[in-house]
Design a protein around this nucleic acid. Structure first.
Length: 730
RNA sequence: GGGCGGUUAGCUCAGUUGGUAGAGCGUCUCAUUGACGUUGAGAAGGUCAUAGGUUCGAAUCCUAUACCGCCCACCA
């Protein structure tokens, strides 16, 4: 054999070249794949946030998806994998504003909306370029001709159309109520974007004034200047005589009208069994106030958007930060001999997940998607939901998974999903951010107009708010396929998509919302299988974090060990839904494996003639027949693993076979015969080696695409194609 | 408060429907001008958290307990 391979495999020499070859072949585009492909396999890449660069989590995600995509392409399916980027409104806003403050000492308000959005767009353009390059380095076989961005013109049209249709169906409404306000990010956030952090607090027990009949308990005395009622349990004997009575009280420099009401939501065992109701600063209290018909004029906003006390809060605390106000009020209670107890307590503080700001519940006029309201679903292929029937978005989301049309892997996340739906409240979709999809609603005096485009006549002003970034992400499986053009060939061909591979941390943010949107807008499920992956931790199992400085740049790993080694290291041994540890030693081990494979191929290539047509027809010895049969069982098992999305087992199986059966046993055993004088024995060995090597390269290709493609190109077999589109053996 | 996951070799973790325990790394011994030292052969090392139960048989199923971790939550 004349082809000279270097002694060791050097990933850097081949990866860029191979990727270019693939990309130029056009085979990432399913329309350009050869042969008659009837079965469809389509995947939408979870679009990475346009906030900068890829991290190891992306490496894990893309290794899994590329393996499954390559496998199905080799199975002869019409395989589409669509790339894209998410504008990640809140994350990008935050990041760019941070840079702005650092570099220019100005915030977004200093430079104005237009200039700020321009800055964000420039930043995003930059990030997207970097990330596209990095995704290519991962070897991801994405159809770049269909690349999408959640903020481009096509996706913007999809967003406006979706909003309009939901608005017309009565599923989107504007409402004034208590929402999660992030004083740091200066925007509202949805319930899912609020995280809880345990903190030590104090439970204060006191009464508003000397002549007020009941004591209440709270951890936030500063909000009590905004109280409108005291709620007790309807069956609580202690307070029966006060229920329905109204008191005027002088409390910490304010005058309050406090009605004592009975509400079943109150726990008689907690504190004094009586709760001060602050409608404007607690969602629960707002709901109690609604149930008790507390009129709007008796609800007082005492905290503003900057987490400072308002004028209404009274002269004692007005203008103060909430924490200062708390101290002042506690002091006032003590001075007036109203405080009866101070007990240390554990409390959960609410924090905005992006900015880290402490959430301040505030009443605001916001846009919501209602999840409990009945509507007529125009059409539906979701089992259990009849087209034309009355249903709710919650029911749609539930049905899609309950009836098995969507499978969530691992199964246990289905329970978590249902639990989330059961407790779901209306989704606050408006954000007071500048970068994002502008809400397609216009106002003129008391008139309101919702439309895909601005109203033609003059005097209208568009709603200043933008949409929650997950609103556009929720459309992703079909907004990337030409929707809202229902006749789009891509949409008809590739939707519902086959496979979806997000991290479990965005099950609610994204997976559930995709099911919601696809259900309402298309009457379809967005995908058939959701394979949730876990988080990658460091070698000791710790989370990657800036403070630990244990971050690893996947591009550095690729430079040092090669992409194939990185890919194997994040796939093998990590089951669905489980966190994995990232260990450079593991990457190194798979680099060694690549080299092993390289040298197996070198040996085989040196051992067979340049023209293999003669040996490929030679008679196999019974021993060689057995070896091929044994490979057949490995193949069958691997195929089954791949079909069931058990990549972690498939990859390990072929790894083990190549090294410890093919190299250690079969190749070793063949050496004597290759050197022998018996031409039949020699030819049989040559044929067997070449066949096994060829098959192994195919089986490994989904996991280690670069080295296998390179080696496959050297094999002296006729009729072969690029390994990328070679047939998976059967 | 509710729910979920984990507990397997020194370390990090696999173990698909129950059939006498596996991988990588690490350790020890030996080999080696050989396709590959990014190597090969071999070895040591586990009562599969604990206690019960089901079964001919359990790391695997059931019930408790302990310890770690995660998610959800309108006990103010």
């Amino acid at each position: 054999m004349s082809t000279e391979l270097p002694k060791a495999y050097n990933a850097a020499d081949v990866e860029d070249k191979i990727y270019k070859l693939w990309e130029e072949s056009g085979f990432f585009d399913p329309d350009k794949l050869p042969g008659d492909r009837k079965d469809i396999f389509s995947v939408a890449l979870p679009p990475p946030n346009a906030t900068g660069t890829l991290h190891l989590g992306h490496a894990l995600e893309y290794s899994l998806q590329d393996a499954v995509v390559r496998y199905h392409r080799m199975r002869g399916e019409k395989t589409l994998w669509i790339p894209g980027t998410d504008h990640a409104a809140i994350a990008t806003n935050t990041k760019v504003e941070k840079i702005l403050i650092k570099e220019e000492g100005r915030n977004r308000h200093d430079i104005g909306r237009e200039a700020f959005v321009k800055k964000v767009e420039d930043f995003v353009a930059d990030s997207r370029g970097t990330m596209q390059k990095q995704i290519r380095q991962m070897g991801a076989s994405l159809d770049w001709s269909r690349e999408a961005f959640t903020m481009d013109a096509e996706r913007n049209l999809a967003v406006r159309t979706a909003f309009k249709r939901m608005y017309d169906a009565g599923l989107i409404y504007r409402g004034y109520r208590v929402i999660n306000w992030d004083p740091k990010g200066q925007t509202s956030v949805s319930d899912d974007e609020v995280q809880h952090r345990p903190e030590k607090g104090v439970l204060y027990t006191f009464r508003y004034s000397k002549d007020f009949p009941v004591e209440i308990a709270t951890t936030r005395p500063e909000t009590k200047v905004g109280d409108s009622a005291v709620a007790v349990h309807p069956d609580d004997k202690r307070y029966q005589k006060y229920i329905g009575k109204e008191y005027g009280v002088e409390f910490a420099g304010t005058r309050l009208k406090v009605k004592i009401v009975a509400d079943p939501g109150v726990d008689p065992e907690f504190g004094t069994g009586a709760v001060g109701v602050t409608p404007m600063h607690s969602m629960t209290d707002w709901e109690i106030a609604d149930r008790q018909n507390i009129p709007a004029e008796d609800r007082h906003q005492v905290i503003n958007e900057y987490a400072r006390m308002t004028e209404i809060a009274g002269p004692l605390v007005a203008g103060k930060k909430t924490k200062e106000a708390r101290d002042i009020i506690v002091q006032w209670l003590k001075e007036n001999d109203l405080l009866s107890k101070e007990e240390p307590t554990e409390l959960n503080i609410s924090v905005a997940e992006r900015s880290g700001g402490v959430i301040e519940p505030l009443p605001k006029l916001q846009w919501f998607i209602t999840v409990n309201k009945e509507f007529t679903i125009p059409r539906s292929s979701i089992k259990g939901i009849e087209g034309g029937s009355e249903t709710t978005l919650k029911d749609v989301m539930r049905a899609a998974v309950q009836n098995g049309q969507i499978r969530i892997m691992p199964d246990r996340f289905e329970k978590i999903y249902f639990h989330w739906i059961n407790n779901l409240r209306d989704w606050n979709i408006s954000r007071q951010l500048w970068y994002g999809h502008r809400i397609p609603v216009w106002y003129r005096g008391k008139e309101i107009y919702c439309g895909i485009d601005a109203p033609k006549d003059s005097g209208w002003e568009q709603d200043p708010d933008t949409l929650d970034t997950w609103f556009s992400s929720a459309l992703w499986t079909f907004s990337t396929l030409g929707w809202p053009d229902e006749n789009s060939p891509d949409l008809q061909m590739y939707h519902p998509t086959t496979f979806m591979n997000p991290g479990y941390e965005i099950l609610f943010f994204w997976v559930a919302r995709m099911i919601l949107m696809s259900g309402f807008l298309l009457g379809e499920i967005p995908f058939k299988t959701v394979y949730l992956h876990g988080i990658l931790r460091d070698a000791q199992g710790r989370k990657f974090s800036k403070s630990l400085d244990n971050g690893v740049d996947p591009i550095d790993v690729i430079k040092q060990y090669g992409t194939d080694a990185l890919r194997m290291s994040v796939v093998v041994g990590i089951g669905p839904g489980n966190d994995g540890n990232f260990d450079l030693n593991k990457v190194k081990a798979y680099k060694h494996f690549g080299n092993k494979l390289w040298n197996i191929a070198r040996f085989v290539l040196m051992s067979v003639p340049e023209d293999s047509s003669g040996i490929m027809n030679s008679q196999l010895t019974p021993g060689d027949e057995r070896s091929l049969a044994e490979l057949g069982t490995v193949l069958a098992s691997m195929t089954s693993h791949m079909d069931q999305y058990r990549f972690y087992l498939a990859a390990e199986e072929i790894y083990h076979y190549v090294w410890h059966t093919f190299a250690d046993k079969i190749v070793e055993e063949s050496k004597a015969r290759l050197a022998s004088e018996d031409p039949a024995a020699k030819a049989s060995a040559q044929r067997m080696l070449l066949e096994i090597l060829s098959t192994c390269l195919k089986l490994l290709h989904p996991f280690m695409p670069f080295i296998t493609e390179e080696l496959y190109s050297k094999l002296p077999i006729s009729g072969k194609t690029m390994l990328l589109i070679e047939k998976w053996p059967v």
